[in-house]
């Protein structure tokens, strides 16, 4: 019972904000649509967090809405850290986190939805076929700056790194036990697509992106290739069976044990009914 009261309060504050906005716009009739919080499967779900997860959750949300016409699912991005912060402060009903939950986040309830792998990519014409972990670390810390030192042709290496705050960066740094200030990059990028375009446009570049995105672009003829790590090929298959080392779980999180609408949504997102959406988004469904 306590949970539903909690939920109700959130909705009241939400509709108060909506009321203010609507009052400003001068169309108070539409307020009535927002205040039906009594039926458990109607109302509005606010979901914020990792940009990696947002398109996936938005698609799941659309299908969920089509099953429950009175439900609205609002998905906003802003990174895993925002997902955690918003869920803690009650700004979001559900948060999206694209990494392993940290120790200081044990107060939140996390539900894995899918898996994602971070793969190292090179230009297709680069003769280098594999790099050891030590070589990757040496390249990213600027100790090796020429491809001939790792078995390629003589050419300076262009190191592509991610901007601070991105979860792909965290996953990458965590696996290679690096600190961001030790990374000597020549290019810093924002999202995965920008990373792939940068590597595709530069034959001497090395970068890292989500395996799902890279695998799809590679199949579409973009001149990049995924490197194997620790002898394991980078593919959605090895991410699924958890043999690929640089992979991460994708979680949705709540502040309190979920109930009502939130519980229904989480159960739906974890069900087999959405596996086709997960595959469409180049993520890997969990083995169940």
């Amino acid at each position: 019972m306590h949970r539903s009261i909690d939920l109700f309060q959130q909705n009241i504050s939400g509709s108060l904000a909506a009321l203010c906005i609507v009052a400003l716009l001068g169309t108070p009739e539409s307020v009535t649509a927002q205040t039906t919080a009594t039926d458990p499967l109607s109302g509005k779900l606010v979901i914020t967090g990792a940009s990696t997860l947002a398109p996936l959750v938005a698609e799941i949300g659309k299908r969920f809405e089509s099953h429950h016409p009175k439900v609205r699912v609002d998905v906003q991005t802003g990174g895993s850290s925002r997902g955690v912060a918003d869920t803690r402060q009650g700004l979001a009903d559900i948060g999206m986190v694209s990494r392993v939950m940290k120790d200081e986040e044990k107060d939140l309830y996390a539900f894995p939805v899918a898996r994602d792998g971070v793969g190292i990519i090179l230009h297709k014409e680069n003769p280098v076929q594999a790099l050891t972990d030590e070589q990757v670390v040496a390249v990213y810390t600027g100790k090796i700056t020429d491809w001939k030192d790792v078995g390629g042709k003589h050419a300076p290496i262009t190191v592509v790194n991610k901007a601070e705050g991105r979860s792909t960066l965290e996953v990458f740094l965590h696996y290679f036990k690096l600190k961001n200030r030790d990374v000597k990059a020549q290019v810093i990028i924002g999202d995965n697509e920008q990373g792939i375009k940068t590597v595709a446009g530069n034959r001497h570049a090395i970068g890292y992106v989500s395996i799902g995105t890279a695998e799809y672009d590679e199949s579409q003829g973009v001149p990049i290739k995924l490197l194997s790590v620790g002898g394991v090929a980078a593919s959605t298959e090895t991410v699924r069976n958890d043999t690929f080392p640089i992979s991460r779980p994708l979680h949705i999180i709540t502040r309190t044990p979920p109930g009502g609408l939130i519980k229904a949504f989480i159960e739906y997102a974890q069900s087999k009914a959405v596996h086709d959406i997960i595959k469409q988004q180049y993520f890997v469904p969990l083995v169940d």
Binding site: A155, P156, T158, Q186, V187, N202
Partner: peptide, 13 residues
């Protein structure tokens, strides 16, 4: 533009 500059003097961007 960036690939052109990369031909002259890497990294390009």
């Amino acid at each position: 533009l960036v690939p052109l500059i990369a031909e002259v003097q890497p990294p390009g961007p």
